[in-house]
């Protein structure tokens, strides 16, 4: 298991497209950091209008912690795309390239192959999230300094003390990693269906975008289905920036995401084991 897994990772990291993701994360983080450097104060005063009418807020509001949060918020849609870029490609890309049939004539079971591809994609996702932590959090802290973090929810204004934030980021990154395993599972299933990698990558994105919109629409009909959509739970990392942290809700979200991940993985294994390889 270790040997094929390391080979799979070797393949992933031998491809230039893998590094596009790391480049994009860096670029997006830098663009937001630059934007915050130049126009962050205006952006903040717009967002904080409701508060600043009645309260004078002074100090290093636009600090690394807040900038990192803004970056994470913006990357909500992008990271799944970057993960789909690898996970969505992992089976369909090989089908398209023609290597899948050769791999499957080797004495390796299809279930094992799916699990290896799943694990390799998760390792890639983890590395991407660690990289995100480096450029979004540590680089922002380096550029903007430390400070108390304000978190504006639609109905609540939260202030977190600077010594009380780092652990929240670690938990948030851990949760984000869990959310990304769901994306990996989804992409992998779509990848098993397809014979080229564009389809599953686009389909993953389409599903994430549409469900994210449904998760955020305030309509009674959607409120009924919201708790069952994985996109509703994918933003559970934000819970760690609430006070008190809604652990029960986060645990519930983690369970829903795990359920989706395992369910989709199982579907992939079952489907892939029955699939005729005609590519």
């Amino acid at each position: 298991m270790i040997k094929p897994l390391s080979l799979e990772l070797y393949k992933i990291f031998k491809r230039p497209r893998t590094y596009i993701s790391f480049g994009l994360v860096t670029a997006i983080a830098l663009v937001i950091q630059l934007a915050m450097c130049s126009g962050g104060k205006e952006f903040l005063s717009f967002g904080m209008q409701g508060i600043t009418e009645q309260f004078a807020i002074q100090g290093n509001v636009l600090n690394g912690y807040l900038v990192a949060y803004i970056i994470l918020q913006s990357l909500l849609i992008h990271i799944p795309l970057l993960i789909a870029l690898v996970a969505g490609d992992s089976i369909a890309g090989e089908a398209n390239m023609g290597t899948l049939r050769l791999v499957l004539t080797k004495p390796i079971s299809r279930s094992r192959l799916v699990i290896i591809k799943f694990t390799a994609s998760i390792i890639y996702s983890l590395l991407l999230i660690i990289w995100l932590a480096v450029v979004a959090l540590f680089l922002s802290l380096f550029l903007f300094g430390k400070g108390d973090m304000i978190n504006m929810k639609s109905d609540t204004f939260i202030l977190l003390l600077q010594d009380d934030i780092m652990w929240r980021y670690f938990c948030a990154f851990a949760f984000a990693s869990l959310a990304m395993t769901t994306i990996v599972s989804l992409s992998l299933l779509l990848s098993a269906f397809a014979e080229n990698s564009i389809g599953p990558i686009m389909a993953t994105m389409a599903i994430v975008v549409v469900l994210t919109i449904l998760s955020n629409l305030e309509l009674p009909l959607f409120n009924l289905i919201k708790p069952y959509l994985f996109t509703t739970h994918m933003i559970g990392w934000k819970g760690f920036f609430d006070d008190p942290v809604p652990y029960k809700a986060i645990r519930n979200s983690a369970l829903v995401l795990s359920f989706y991940t395992l369910g989709l993985l199982l579907m992939t294994i079952i489907y892939f084991n029955k699939k005729d390889i005609k590519s």
Partner: peptide
């Protein structure tokens, strides 16, 4: 069809490892 982004040796080594 083999992995175009790998060299010949890497391809051989990859499939040799998978061969059991």
């Amino acid at each position: 069809d083999v992995y175009n982004y790998l060299d010949g040796f890497e391809n051989l080594n990859f499939f040799a490892t998978l061969s059991g």
